[in-house]
């Protein structure tokens, strides 16, 4: 049965990692504007480099 405690500890560590990742990303505002980020990745960047000279 003690294996159970081991498993729980491991699961806590993993889910704790996800919790920290979640808090971190919401602190950085990742959940605030879902529309622009979703579209931003679809745009070509090639004009940018062309005009930078």
């Amino acid at each position: 049965m003690s294996v159970l405690v081991g498993l729980l500890v491991i699961s806590m560590i993993i889910s704790g990692g996800f919790l920290i990742a979640f808090l971190w990303s919401s602190k950085n505002g990742q959940f605030e504007d879902q529309f622009s980020s979703a579209n931003r990745i679809l745009f070509e960047e090639k004009i940018k480099t062309k005009n930078k000279n």
Partner: peptide, 27 residues
């Protein structure tokens, strides 16, 4: 719309004095 984001985030190409621009679409 998404075209607005595209245009506004490339605003620095339309005008050289602009360094960068970023859109918050929701707001």
């Amino acid at each position: 719309c998404s075209s607005c984001i595209y245009l506004l985030e490339n605003f620095h190409i339309l005008n050289n004095a602009v360094i960068s621009s970023r859109v918050d679409f929701v707001r």
